[in-house]
Design a binder for these strands. Structure first.
Length: 278
DNA sequence: CGGCCAACCTGTGCGC
DNA sequence: TGCGCACAGGTTGGCC
């Protein structure tokens, strides 16, 4: 369920539970998710201490004191569930693929019905060169993502803006929901070709992208009080979607009486208001 | 290289 | 209740 804000929320739940802890047991309950797990994954995790947790795009990276980094991607349906020390551990369900037990009794479960998720173990030093990370564009909340960059990247591009913003090589971490929300806020149609956008329109997208993601992270944070369930759910932000999942419902922009439309673009739903988004 | 599309999986919700 | 279909928040890799 995870775009950047959901992954960030998961990370923030994981951090207090895992930081400084030793992994006592690693139960790898199948041989693969999207790809096969790395060789001897359990063996390489057991006995390792967690030094740092961080995020790159939709990937969680967990640096260990073994000079290796555990890389986690939640795919479409991945969840991480945290059981604090002394909590009862319910029986494992069929999609609980990886179970980590920490030295204070914390249990971390990776659950992923669709198995589009992934895990790998990387050399910490060269983690950023990993094939899954190396081509990802700048973090939207970081300094390298700015109007000049975005203009240089998409001005003159022949693709619809929707497709460009979903392209992880251009910008990290946006997914279908937040792209729809961003474009509604910007008043730009998802069908609008990049090359038909003015530089000033592209410039305006930058703070909107930052705002939408930041608000979603804040909403996610407030849903994390029960940190057992660090699932990638959309927290409270889903209650404030302007367009996503709102086909045929009224546009919430003041003075607009149109209804939200759903179209398919490169195989994925785009929700937008024909009246407000040009 | 750009752009389209199938593929990877399972679950859920809807219409009939 | 059951069946079939559409659809789901991501990403890769193959093809033209």
């Amino acid at each position: 369920m995870p775009e950047l804000p959901e992954v960030e929320t998961v990370l923030r739940g994981l951090e207090p539970a895992m930081l400084g802890r030793l992994i006592l047991r690693a139960d790898i309950r199948r041989k693969n998710l999207r790809w096969e797990f790395p060789k001897d994954m359990a063996k390489r995790l057991i006995g390792a201490r967690v030094l740092r947790l961080h995020r790159r795009s939709k990937y969680i990276l967990c640096d260990l004191d073994t000079k290796e980094t555990l890389l986690i991607h939640l795919g479409m349906s991945g969840q991480i569930i945290i059981f604090p020390p002394r909590d009862e551990h319910p029986e494992l369900g069929k999609h609980n693929h990886v179970v980590l037990d920490l030295d204070d009794g914390t249990r971390i479960i990776f659950n992923d019905p669709r198995r589009f998720g992934a895990m790998d173990l990387l050399d910490t030093k060269t983690a950023e060169q990993h094939r899954l990370l190396v081509n990802i564009g700048p973090e939207p909340l970081g300094n390298h993502f700015n109007p000049d960059y975005l203009i240089q990247k998409i001005y003159c591009k022949n693709t619809p803006i929707k497709t460009a913003l979903l392209d992880q090589k251009i910008i990290a971490g946006l997914g279908n929901i937040y792209v729809c929300e961003v474009l509604w806020r910007a008043g730009v149609s998802p069908l609008h070709k990049c090359k038909d956008l003015s530089q000033s329109q592209i410039t305006k997208l930058v703070p909107i992208i930052r705002d939408v993601l930041t608000e979603a992270i804040i909403a996610g944070g407030s849903s994390l009080k029960d940190y057992r369930k660090t699932n990638g759910d959309l927290g409270y932000f889903q209650h404030s979607f302007a367009v996503y999942g709102r086909e045929n419902l009224p546009c919430t922009k003041k003075g607009c009486s149109h209804h939200i439309k759903r179209i398919i673009q490169s195989g994925r739903s785009s929700f937008y208001c024909e009246n407000c988004q040009k």
